[in-house]
Structures are given as C-alpha cells and as structure tokens.
Design a protein around this nucleic acid. Structure first.
Lengths: 222, 222
DNA sequence: TCAACTACGTGGTTATAACCACATACATCT
DNA sequence: AGATGTATGTGGTTATAACCACGTAGTTGA
C-alpha cells in the first residue's frame, strides 16, 4: 500500500508514516476498481468497511422499485462514504453507493473499532478521532440537503443549493458535480421542470449556466 | 453532579463510576433548565458544548425571517443534540435548538476533544468512542428525514414517516412526538393540507389517529 | 459522415399541494 | 362557568410542479 498518496486525507490526519502503515494493516485496507455505473454497495446489505475515494467519484442514492431515485450526496476524490454503516456494522444500508465515473476505492474495515476489542494502540485513537470529524462533517452535509429540499418552489431549492456551493467554493462561477437528472434527484425535483425553471432564472438574470457550469449573478436588489 | 441518573446514557456507556465523574469534571458538565418555547441554542452562533436532555424534549429546527420553520428532528429524554457543532466548535449553527416542553439540559464541553490537547486519559477515548456512535446514529436520523420528505405526495410522506416510527417502536399503535404543525414542518408540508390528507387516509382505512396517537392499519392488499 | 444514443430542453395538460378564510374542538386560567 | 387562547379541521381557489410526448443538441463509435 502506497502511504504517500493518502497521508493527506482527513482520516490519517496527524499520524506518522509508521502509524499510517500500521493502521492500513490493522484496518485491512483493500484497493478496488469500479466501472462507471456500477453499484459498489447495495441498500439492504450490511458492511464493516468504509470507503475512501482514491480516484473518480461516487453518489450516495436510494433507488426504489418504481425507478425513483433520491440522491443524498456526491462523494469526490479523497472523500469518504459508508463510515456510518461501517461503524454500525449491523445496520442495513438505506442507500446504494454508485460509481459516478470509473473509480478506485480504498476500503477500510472499521466495524470493530468502537467495540474496544482491540487494545488501544496509538493509531486506533487517532483514527477514531478523525472518524469523529468525518462523521460530524457528513452530518452537516445531510443537514444541507434537508435545507436545499425545503423550499416549496423550484427556484428556492436551486438558489439554496447553488448559494451553498458558491460559498463553499468561494466563487460565483463553479461546476456542480451533477448532471441535470442528478441535480433534479438531489433537489427532489422532476428533471424537465428543473430545466424550465433554470431557463427562467437565466432570463431573469439571476444565474447563467452551460451544462454543469454555473454562474451566480450578484443580485441587483438591495 | 449525580452520576446515577446518567450512567445509562449512551455517552457514558462502558465507563466506571470513577471515569464518569472524572469525565463530568473534565467536560465541564453544567445543568440548566429551560421553559417551553425557549431557544436553547441559536442559529448563527457557535458552541463548544453539546447537550444531553435530562428532562423534557427539544426540537432541532430552522426558522427563517419569513416565519417558515423546518424541523430536522425531535430530541427526547436521554438523547443528545449539538454534538456536531460542539465538536466542530467554529462551525456556525444552521439550526435553533428549542425547548419543546419545560426541560432540563446537561451541557458537556467537547470542543477540545478531537484536538488531542488533553493528554489521553482512560475516559477521553471512551467518550470519543461513544460520541462516534452518537454521531453516526444522528446521521441515520438525518438520512431518515431526507427519505420521509422525498415522496411527492403528502400521503407518501406520511406513510414513510409513520412506517419508520412504527418499525422503530415495534408496534402499529404509537404516539408521535409532534403536534400537527410540527409534523407538517418535519415532513415539509403545509399544516391544513396535512390535516386533509390524514382525514382521507382515515377514510380509506389506511390509518386511524387521535391527536398525536396513530394506528397503522395492516394494509389489506397483497 | 452517418447512425445510434444520451443529455437536455420545450409545450401543453393535469393533478395536487399551498394558500386563505373560517369553523370547531380543546385546553387553560381566573 | 365563562372567557381567552391554542390546536386542529374544512371548504374553496389558485399557483405550480409533475407528467407526458416530443424535439434538439451534443457525444460516441463504426
């Protein structure tokens, strides 16, 4: 396992090279590749492992039998998924994890961590501390979607989402990680209705966009 | 501080009485009372403390300037809130915490925990491990709301929510912790529209209810 | 360069949830 | 008990998002 590539990810923050390679061994680190569109983890199943996206990106989504899709979040390079289910190893997953593009995943077995079965080594406490940060951030992310899907109007949802991305990226011009259908599924909207409203917002001078590149206009009103 | 009352809460799980009282001191435990309707923590502010509900209950909500309310969750006795913001002590809160009834809160200062400034004592790792569990469960809770608010129809949302409560409580007759307005704000609906749909669902033999007591009928269809 | 496929957008229709105004039931207080 | 206040329900109207069918643009591949 190549330590250099991952020593800067949140989960190994503050750890020495030695600790990291101990941790990688202790956590049974396994690398795996997936083709775009593949389901990496299936809703209903359980897992003792969390995932770190080394290359590519994945989406966390729920697909019901009628073909409806809910997208909870997008997980990009150097970000994590399934840490919740990995830790609570018995909890059946409510979501699928799907490869959004060809990607490479590092799996880490964390299901035993909180049980204290392992005698505490220096790396275990550090990993747990870092997992805590990851979990709390994931919390903010899920809260975020709750807010973006709250406005009754399409325009309200779009603005809530685009604003948050803009603030996060620190610029009014930015790419979003979703295509239209995904954006609609993230904002809990119907795709064509979203298209229409985006058009209107462009006509109204609120935003500009091309594909998944968006430009938030400074609102002229005080 | 009376240890007996709280030794069974999740955050002190697996700790000796001695560890618990050390932890209470180290976490600067403070008890406080709030009257129904009081805002305990304000959106926009930061906090280094998390809350444990000793008595009563609180709601986690967002109130915008136009009077719209979003309820993210209900936190009952022996449950926790603001652990996310307490840990990420710089993160401005996106939500208010409001006393749902007269209540008593135990505040624990956890803002320093993950920084490793404190030299590791036996209780710190245990608290962190337990916080991890709490955080991941909070994650599932937030995911839950994302799912309950996803169906396009009022009936779909109500069923999604009531089903999850029913499963969680293990019975088809149960109380929900919300009044109508709160239920509407949780499911992202307008109150009167919710009332009407509940009535229709009763007429259709899907559910029965009186106030906040609900009865899920076994669906007759295969 | 043409064909096939996918992503995206548009027009028109309809179902339905929001909204408003009000009624009724229920609880609280003196 | 009566009065006040709050929670809940109902009827009617309207705005709007979902839905369906189709067109167009943009991409991939032979």
């Amino acid at each position: 396992m190549d330590v250099n590539k991952i020593e800067n990810t949140v989960i190994f923050q503050g750890m020495s090279e030695r600790e990291i390679s101990d941790a990688l061994e202790g956590l049974n680190a396994v690398k795996k590749k997936y083709k775009k569109g593949t389901t990496i983890l299936h809703a209903g199943s359980t897992t003792k492992r969390m995932g770190l996206v080394l290359e590519g990106s994945v989406t966390i989504e729920n697909n019901d039998v009628w073909g409806n899709r809910i997208i909870l979040s997008h997980v990009g390079k150097n970000q994590f998924f399934a840490e919740t289910y990995g830790l609570l190893a018995d909890e059946p997953m409510l979501v699928d994890v799907v490869a959004n593009e060809n990607c490479q995943i590092l799996f880490l077995t964390i299901g035993f961590l909180h049980r204290g079965t392992l005698r505490p080594k220096s790396w275990t406490t550090k990993i747990m501390s870092n997992l805590l940060i990851i979990s709390t951030h994931k919390n903010l992310l899920l809260s975020g979607r709750n807010f973006h899907t709250a406005p009754k109007t399409i325009r309200g949802r779009v603005m809530s989402y685009l604003n948050s991305v803009s603030i996060q990226k620190g610029t009014t011009v930015f790419d979003i990680p979703f295509d239209r259908q995904q954006m609609a599924d993230y904002l809990n909207l119907e795709r064509t209705a979203l298209s229409k409203e985006l058009r209107k917002m462009k006509d109204d001078g609120l935003i500009d966009f091309h594909k998944n590149n968006f430009h938030l206009m400074e609102s002229l009103e005080l």
